Simulated scan of single mutants.
Amino acid sequence: MSIPTTHPFDFDPTYGMQLEELLAVEPPEAPAGFDDFWKARYLKALAVDPQPVLRRSKITHADWHVLDLVYISTSSFRIGGWLILPRKGEVRRGLVVGHGYGGRDRPDFDLPVEETAVLFPCCRGLSLSARPPISQNPSWHVLHDIDKPGSYVIGGCVEDLWLAVSTLVALYPWVSGHIGYSGISFGGGLGAMAIAYDPRIDRGHLALPTFGDQPLRLTLPTVGSAQSVQAYHKKHPDVLETLRFYDAATAASRIKVPMLTAVALFDPSVAPPCQFAVANALPKFNEIFILDAGHFDYPGSAKQEAVLRDKIGQFFRVP
Score class of each variant (00 low, 15 high):
M1R: 04
M1K: 02
M1I: 13
S2G: 12
I3F: 13
T5P: 01
P8A: 11
D10G: 07
D10H: 12
F11N: 06
P13T: 00
T14V: 06
Y15C: 10
Y15L: 11
G16E: 11
M17Q: 14
Q18F: 12
A24P: 02
P28S: 15
P31A: 12
A32Y: 09
D35G: 03
D36C: 07
F37N: 04
K39I: 09
A40W: 04
A40V: 13
Y42S: 02
K44D: 10
A45T: 02
A45Q: 07
V53W: 13
R55E: 08
S57M: 10
T60G: 07
T60R: 14
H61E: 01
D63L: 15
S73T: 05
S76V: 04
F77Y: 15
F77L: 03
R78C: 03
G81A: 05
R87Y: 03
R87P: 00
K88F: 14
K88E: 15
E90I: 05
E90T: 12
V91K: 02
G98C: 09
G98M: 08
Y101T: 12
R104S: 12
D105W: 08
D108H: 10
F109P: 03
F109N: 05
D110G: 11
E114R: 15
E115V: 01
T116V: 08
L119D: 06
S129L: 12
S135Q: 04
S135T: 08
Q136N: 09
Q136L: 07
P138M: 10
S139E: 03
H141K: 09
H141E: 08
L143C: 10
D145I: 01
D145K: 15
K148T: 09
G150P: 05
S151N: 12
L161V: 14
W162F: 07
A164H: 05
A164F: 09
V165Y: 10
S176I: 01
S176V: 01
H178M: 11
Y181M: 04
Y181P: 01
S185W: 09
F186V: 04
G187I: 10
G188H: 06
M193G: 00
D198H: 09
D198N: 15
H205E: 10
A207C: 06
A207S: 09
T210W: 15
Q214L: 10
P215R: 13
V223N: 11
V223R: 11
G224L: 08
G224H: 13
Q230D: 05
Y232P: 01
Y232Q: 03
K234Q: 13
L240G: 10
L240K: 10
L240A: 11
E241D: 06
E241L: 12
Y246C: 08
A252M: 08
A252P: 11
K256H: 06
V257I: 12
M259N: 00
L260R: 00
A264D: 04
A264K: 05
F266T: 05
D267K: 04
S269W: 02
A271K: 07
A271T: 04
P273A: 06
P273G: 06
P273D: 03
A277P: 02
V278C: 02
A279E: 03
N280H: 14
A281D: 02
F285T: 07
I288L: 06
L291F: 14
D297V: 05
D297W: 07
S301Q: 14
E305I: 13
D310L: 08
D310P: 00
F315P: 00
F315I: 03
V318P: 04
P319Q: 08
P319E: 12
